[in-house]
């Protein structure tokens, strides 16, 4: 049995272990964000004092930062495509652009949080503040982890340790990145767009 002598390459499904792991992990993450969103929904409109959402949300501003985040999924997909084709310079450009767009989103979130705090919304002031900051904050933390992973890939490419053989690694980071984007579509809709 020549093919089973190299057991580390054999998989029952033909899919790499790491890719299966990432999909399962993202399934677990759905429950994590699901529980945070459920908490937000349970306390929707239950705050006893202001500030209330309609008083401080700037939908246009948040829509732009959401658009930037969604566009980063496009550049992420282009990065995966480039590394598969073995085009390392293009891969670096797309990875960098993806990381920059993610950073713009997180920077936008920091600015938004600062503005809200200036308008009197804090973690402690009411249920809206408590649930809003914790939900969007954990999403922002996930984006930040994604940015760190993208810069780690760029760092590896500078060290010469990123090539077509590592295309799967880039793809798996991409899976995480797209997931974080999709979660934002849900959070943005539930928190900002649904009428209170």
């Amino acid at each position: 049995m020549a093919e089973v002598a190299h057991a580390e390459h054999y998989t029952s499904t033909g899919i790499d272990h790491r890719k299966v792991l990432m999909w399962l992990f993202l399934g677990s993450e759905c429950l994590f964000f699901g529980s945070l969103i459920a908490t937000y929904q349970v306390y929707r409109g239950q705050s006893l004092v202001g500030p209330h959402p309609h008083e401080i949300f700037n939908i246009a501003y948040t829509s732009i930062s959401a658009f930037v985040l969604l566009m980063s999924s496009l550049t992420m997909a282009l990065a995966v495509n480039s590394i598969r084709l073995g085009n390392l310079p293009a891969t670096r450009v797309w990875l960098l652009l993806t990381a920059l767009q993610g950073s713009i989103f997180v920077g936008g979130q920091v600015f938004e949080f600062t503005t809200f705090v200036a308008h009197g919304l804090s973690l402690q002031v009411n249920l809206f503040g408590t649930t809003f900051f914790v939900l969007t904050g954990f999403h922002g933390a996930h984006v930040t982890v994604g940015i760190i992973m993208l810069f780690s890939l760029l760092f590896a490419s500078v060290l010469g340790r990123l090539g077509p053989a590592q295309a799967l690694t880039v793809e798996i980071v991409g899976l995480y990145w797209h997931f974080v984007d999709i979660v934002w579509i849900v959070i943005f809709t539930v928190v900002y767009l649904l009428p209170y």
Partner: peptide, 28 residues
């Protein structure tokens, strides 16, 4: 994960004074 989120909420209530389980602020 739901338990993790519940524990995070207790942690935030205890460390940072949030209102997840504070009936005085409407928490349930």
């Amino acid at each position: 994960p739901p338990f993790t989120v519940g524990l995070i909420e207790v942690m935030f209530d205890r460390l940072f004074g949030t209102n997840f389980f504070n009936p005085a602020a409407g928490g349930n």
